[in-house]
């Protein structure tokens, strides 16, 4: 039995230790918000946060994340209230929506480590996740907006 800490909860799952985290999340824990895109760590669709940092779950053996804090899209908020989700809704970023978990978690990780990213830093961080629908122009705007929202929340607190 593998023991995992996902979205603040302990989970037990019976899968091989070399199984990629992606498939443990999706097929083992039924957390299907994390998506399969390429299987070779290029597209970024499968990004989850491990101890707050974006990780390609499709090439990360589950054995490498035991004892760590894993955050998936399902764990970002209970009610779409995370600044990035709010900005994504306001800018109507998603089209098909399939890559958006990877986009949103990548943006959340960026803003967590760098609350006031420059345009160049946004370009660099968000170029790690592919979108075939072409939501890039809206992602650019939404990340900046999320940064402002997060800053406002911080001030209020």
């Amino acid at each position: 039995m593998l023991q995992l800490n996902v979205n603040g909860q302990r989970h037990e799952v019976a899968m091989e230790t070399d199984t990629p985290l992606l498939w443990v999340l999706r097929d083992g824990l039924k957390l299907t918000g994390t998506k399969f895109g390429c299987g070779i760590a290029i597209c970024g669709t499968c990004v989850v946060l491990v101890d707050g940092r974006p990780v390609r779950s499709c090439v990360t053996p589950v054995s490498a994340v035991i004892g760590k804090h894993i955050t998936t899209i399902e764990g970002l908020s209970d009610d779409n209230s995370h600044a990035v989700q709010q900005a994504w809704i306001e800018e109507e970023v998603p089209q098909c929506g399939y890559c958006q978990s990877g986009q949103i978690l990548t943006a959340a990780a960026l803003l967590d480590s760098n609350p006031e990213p420059t345009e160049a830093e946004i370009e660099q961080a968000m170029s790690e996740v592919l979108c075939r629908c072409g939501t890039y122009p809206r992602i650019r705007i939404a990340v900046k907006k999320a940064a402002r929202k997060a800053a406002d929340k911080h001030k209020e607190a």
């Binding site: 779409n80 994504w88 809704i89 970023v93 998603p94 929506g97 949103i104």
Partner: peptide, 13 residues
Amino acid sequence: TPDKVNGKAVFGI
């Protein structure tokens, strides 16, 4: 949109 920012939207996969 709301279900496409939190992983709830169900795709075929």
